[in-house]
C-alpha cells in the first residue's frame, strides 16, 4: 500500500493545486469575500477553496504517514474485470435509454405506427421495452461476466427478475416512471 499511498497523496495534492489556482479562479462568480452595498459577506469561492485546501492537507498527510513497505503491487486484472462490468452497465443504460424509441422507429418504418414516443411512454409495451432490455443486459451481462460464460439460463433468470422488478416497482405505483420514460 506504501507506493499506492504516494500515488494517491500526490494525485490529491496536484488536484488541489489545479482546483485552487485554475478551477476556482476561472469558474466561480464571486471571490472569497464579497462587498455588496457596504455589506461584507462570504463569496462563492471560499467554501471550495477550503475544500481543496483540505484535499491538499489530506494528500500531504498521506505522503508523510509512515507505512509498512509490505505490498507495492496493484493488480491490474481486477481493474480490468471491473472495467468490463462498467462497460456492461453502460451498455445496459444505453439500451434502456434508446431501445424503446429505437423499436418505435422500426415500427414506423414498417408503417405500424406514426406516433411519437412521448405519447406512448405510459402504454404497454412501450413503457417497458427500454427498462426490460436494459435490465436484462445489466443483470444477465454482469452475472455472465462473473461466471465466465454466457448461459441461456442466466438470461432467462435476468428476464424473469426484471419482470419481477417491473411488477414490484411499476405496477403498484401509478406516479412512478421507469427509465427512460421520464426523459420524454
Amino acid at each position: 500500500m506504501y507506493r499506492l499511498n504516494i500515488y494517491i497523496g500526490t494525485g490529491a495534492v496536484l488536484l488541489a493545486l489545479v482546483g485552487l489556482f485554475l478551477w476556482i479562479p476561472q469558474d466561480t462568480g464571486t471571490g472569497l469575500i464579497v462587498r455588496v452595498r457596504r455589506q461584507v459577506s462570504i463569496g462563492d469561492a471560499l467554501a471550495p477553496t477550503i475544500a481543496f485546501t483540505l484535499l491538499a492537507i489530506g494528500g500531504a498527510l498521506l505522503l508523510i504517514e509512515r507505512r509498512k513497505h509490505s505490498s507495492t503491487d496493484v493488480m491490474l486484472a481486477p481493474f480490468l474485470h471491473t472495467g468490463a462490468l462498467v462497460a456492461v452497465i453502460i451498455l445496459g443504460l444505453l439500451l434502456m435509454r434508446h431501445a424503446g424509441p429505437g423499436f418505435l422507429l422500426v415500427a414506423e418504418w414498417f408503417g405500424a405506427t406514426d406516433t411519437e414516443y412521448r405519447l406512448l411512454r405510459e402504454t404497454f409495451p412501450w413503457k417497458y421495452i427500454g427498462y426490460f432490455l436494459g435490465g436484462v443486459a445489466i443483470i444477465g451481462g454482469m452475472a455472465s461476466l462473473s461466471a465466465g460464460r454466457l448461459q441461456a439460463r442466466t438470461v432467462l433468470i435476468a428476464g424473469v427478475v426484471t419482470i419481477g422488478l417491473v411488477a414490484l416497482v411499476d405496477v403498484p405505483f401509478d406516479d412512478l416512471l421507469l427509465p427512460p420514460n421520464g426523459d420524454y
Partner: peptide, 17 residues
C-alpha cells in the same frame, strides 16, 4: 488513515459545492 479520511471529506465537500 487520517490522510485518506481528509481526502474523502474534501472530495465530498467539493462534490456538494
Amino acid at each position: 488513515s487520517p490522510g485518506k479520511g481528509l481526502i474523502s471529506v474534501a472530495l465530498g465537500l467539493i462534490a456538494v459545492f
